[in-house]
């Protein structure tokens, strides 16, 4: 016989096995007797597996050490309290928290809609510019003047490209 299933919450032997279909997706949970009781699973009224999964994902005790968003100082506990994030960077910081929730929340887990083309092009240009400027600095420092001239030309070309959309409107 296969090894007995462990409780998803406390790793005792699981004796309660639940399968629920939410949004056409099958969710399975295995619980031990006491966790099942504690979570109200044995109460046939008003129990939702989705809630259980959700609460579980948000329970700070079940998460690795409370991470803090470097950009804005937001914590997992803040998210539990507000249900909203602190800044765009939080999605990267708390990806392990949010990823499992997306499946229940949305139709898919990957964006297939509009892309902010202009914003992204500008960002690519900006990143390239920063890179070139540091290369230029390096070249000057090490007295590679031919390289430096090449970098400088490329920078001025890029800058023109960046300026253009602004003058157009």
């Amino acid at each position: 016989m296969a090894s007995p299933l462990k409780c998803d919450l406390c790793s005792n032997q699981a004796t309660v096995h639940l399968t629920q279909i939410v949004n056409n997706k099958v969710h399975k949970v295995d619980l031990c007797e006491s966790c099942a009781q504690a979570k109200g699973v044995t109460d046939p009224n008003g129990f939702s597996l989705a809630d259980l999964l959700h609460k579980d994902a948000l329970n700070p005790e079940n998460l690795t050490t409370a991470a803090r968003c470097e950009q804005c100082g937001f914590t997992q506990a803040d998210f539990k309290k507000q249900g909203r994030f602190g800044c765009p960077q939080c999605y990267a910081t708390f990806s392990s928290l949010i990823e499992p929730m997306l499946d229940n929340m949305h139709k898919g887990t990957a964006h297939t809609g509009k892309v902010p083309q202009k914003s992204l092009e500008r960002k690519t240009l900006h990143d390239r510019l920063t890179e070139l400027e540091s290369s230029l600095g390096q070249a000057v420092k090490t007295e590679r003047f031919e390289d430096a001239a090449r970098y400088r030309d490329e920078i001025s070309q890029l800058k023109q490209a960046v300026e253009q959309p602004k003058s157009a409107c």
Binding site: Q71, Q82, R84, G86, S119
Partner: peptide, 8 residues
């Protein structure tokens, strides 16, 4: 980009 959401 790079700015906290209004509530935070």
């Amino acid at each position: 980009a790079g700015r906290s959401f209004p509530g935070w």
